[in-house]
């Protein structure tokens, strides 16, 4: 993963809100939902305005203290996890750069920052049954809802 690669939320299939510093994320296609707080919420909120790996490392480093190498490696792993879950996709750079003042967490002096911790993506699959109602029935050319008989 290169620092200049840009990512965006995979909307509209992914919907989300950030509440009390925690990102609540729903995959409308699969019925899975997720949450991420602290470092994970900082990353997610920043991706919401389109961000590169470099932007994300900057955003996390402003809020948490830790070595640049450690932050970059961990953020990179977290992005790979978000991509595996199809929550984010690569995109072109934004035409206008987002203002960093909108980010979760305030820019703080080195002494006041909490220590960097690994971001965690919590995944919940207990609602996917809502989208797995029935098997797909192929319909013939005369239209719905007559299913093609088995074996045809």
């Amino acid at each position: 993963m290169v620092l200049e690669e840009y990512f965006r939320i995979n909307s509209p299939k992914i919907v989300y809100e950030i509440i009390d510093g925690e990102a609540v994320i729903i995959n409308m296609d699969l019925g899975h939902y997720y949450s991420a707080d602290q470092v994970g919420a900082v990353i997610w909120e920043r991706i919401g305005r389109i961000a590169s790996l470099g932007d994300l490392v900057e955003a996390v480093a402003r809020c948490y203290s830790g070595s640049r190498e450690q932050i970059e490696g961990t953020v990179s792993q977290f992005l790979a996890e978000l991509q595996r879950e199809n929550l984010i996709i690569t995109t072109t750079p934004p035409e206008k750069l987002a203002t960093e003042s909108e980010s979760i967490g305030e820019s703080q002096g080195t002494s006041g920052k909490p220590a960097f911790i690994q971001p965690i993506l919590n995944k919940y699959t207990d609602m996917e049954y809502l989208l797995l109602l029935d098997p797909i029935h192929e319909v013939d050319e005369s239209g719905w809802p007559n299913a093609i008989p088995d074996g045809k």
């Binding site: 909307s11 019925g31 609602m127």
Partner: peptide
């Protein structure tokens, strides 16, 4: 956030064709 996680997924996945506005 805990309240939202209890209320939103089952509401939105069952009923909403406007996921983001419902959330």
């Amino acid at each position: 956030a805990e309240g939202l996680k209890a209320l939103a997924p089952s509401t939105i996945l069952q009923l909403s064709d406007q996921g983001q506005s419902a959330l």
